[in-house]
């Protein structure tokens, strides 16, 4: 049925996908991003004493408010799972091959999606120890945690 349509010149519409809003981040994410700017990762203490990272305002299981007990975590961490990106897109945090990974920061009970800057795929494995690398000029974004890199022993 598609072939029944006679198509002339394609119509071109240029649009920009964006969130053109200023937002306040609230007590939990606000604290997280303020600390991240200063090179400190924070998790949040849940009712069951677990430390959740990245920190949320509400318990993902129960919907309960988690309060505001922020817990310093990192700068060391462990790769829990990973994939290798040979051909980074313009939207990716690094411009050379890297791993996207779930990294569990030391002191946290959950893991965060992050970039791992390991240089080559052979250097990456589940369970590898990594250390947070922060941007020298923070922007107030999650990418202020520029990447995790292999911990030098």
């Amino acid at each position: 049925m598609c072939s029944d349509f006679i198509v002339s010149e394609p119509r071109i519409i240029e649009t920009k996908l964006e969130f053109p809003y200023s937002r306040t981040l609230g007590p939990v994410m606000g604290a997280f991003f303020m600390a991240l700017r200063d090179g400190q990762l924070l998790g949040i203490r849940a009712k069951d004493r677990r430390v959740l990272a990245p920190p949320l305002e509400y318990d993902p299981e129960t919907g309960e408010s988690l309060g505001t007990e922020m817990v310093p975590i990192g700068p060391g961490g462990t790769v829990e799972a990973w994939t290798w990106v040979d051909d980074p897109t313009q939207k990716h945090p690094l411009d050379h091959p890297f791993a996207f990974a779930l990294v569990k920061p030391d002191g946290a009970d959950t893991s965060m999606v992050s970039a791992v800057d390991a240089g080559r795929v052979e250097a990456v494995h589940t369970g590898m120890r990594v250390t947070a690398r922060y941007r020298s000029e923070p922007q107030g974004l999650i990418t202020d945690l520029e990447a995790w890199e292999p911990t030098k022993s």
């Binding site: 994939t83 313009q90 945090p93 996207f100 990974a101 779930l102 999606v113």
Partner: peptide
């Protein structure tokens, strides 16, 4: 806040899941 600025695409996420 935590994910979109990373530009993490569905295929990369699926790669992490596959390795897990």
């Amino acid at each position: 806040y935590y994910l979109a600025p990373l530009g993490v695409d569905p295929v990369s996420l699926a790669g992490i899941q596959a390795q897990a």
